[in-house]
């Protein structure tokens, strides 16, 4: 009896804050792609989906219902901190986006080089031909 009540409560919490649930599920989807796909480009896409989940989680953590974006529209009036949402997660998301763009660029250029060298994007095949080359040497 107690267990079902607890489960119900958890389910309510999950559906109530569905933005965060969606963020977490996105993270999981990205992680699954990262583990299961052999194609390098798909792995990079998976990593980007994981990034997106993180941004969504951060941005939704900063949101407070009924409050405004942290941009002061009336500079002469009195400023009440209770009118605005939390500005710190927005700044953190920005950092994350920039870093993810940079990392994606480096990964893609490495993928280009690997494709040029081995003619495939399959990680296993690349690994096998690398091992063969090593043995031949």
């Amino acid at each position: 009896m107690k267990g079902t009540v607890k489960k119900k409560k958890m389910l309510e919490a999950l559906t109530g804050s569905y933005e965060e649930t969606a963020a977490v599920i996105l993270f999981g989807i990205g992680f699954t792609i990262l583990l299961f796909h052999k194609n390098l480009i798909k792995k990079i896409i998976g990593l980007n989906i994981m990034d997106t989940g993180v941004y969504l989680l951060l941005a939704s953590m900063g949101y407070i219902a009924g409050k405004n974006a942290p941009i002061i529209t009336d500079p002469d009036g009195a400023i009440n901190a209770a009118d605005y949402i939390n500005p710190i997660p927005s700044g953190l998301v920005l950092t994350g986006i920039v870093v993810s763009v940079s990392v994606t660029a480096i990964m893609l250029s490495l993928a280009v080089r690997l494709h040029k060298r081995y003619g495939t994007l399959d990680l296993d095949e690349i690994y096998m031909s690398a091992v063969n080359e090593h043995d031949d040497r």
Binding site: M10, A13, L14, G16, S17, Y18, E19, E20, T21, A23, V24, F27, G28, S60, M61, Y63, I64, A65, G66, P70, I79, N80, A81, Y84, N86, P87, I88
Partner: peptide, 27 residues
């Protein structure tokens, strides 16, 4: 992750232990 999200303060609610830093930034 889902368990963690279920135990977080819900979406759009102000958490009880809000940072004093954010208030300072805003004001």
């Amino acid at each position: 992750l889902l368990t963690t999200v279920a135990n977080l303060p819900g979406f759009g609610t102000l958490s009880e232990n809000a940072e004093p830093l954010e208030e300072e930034y805003l004001t």
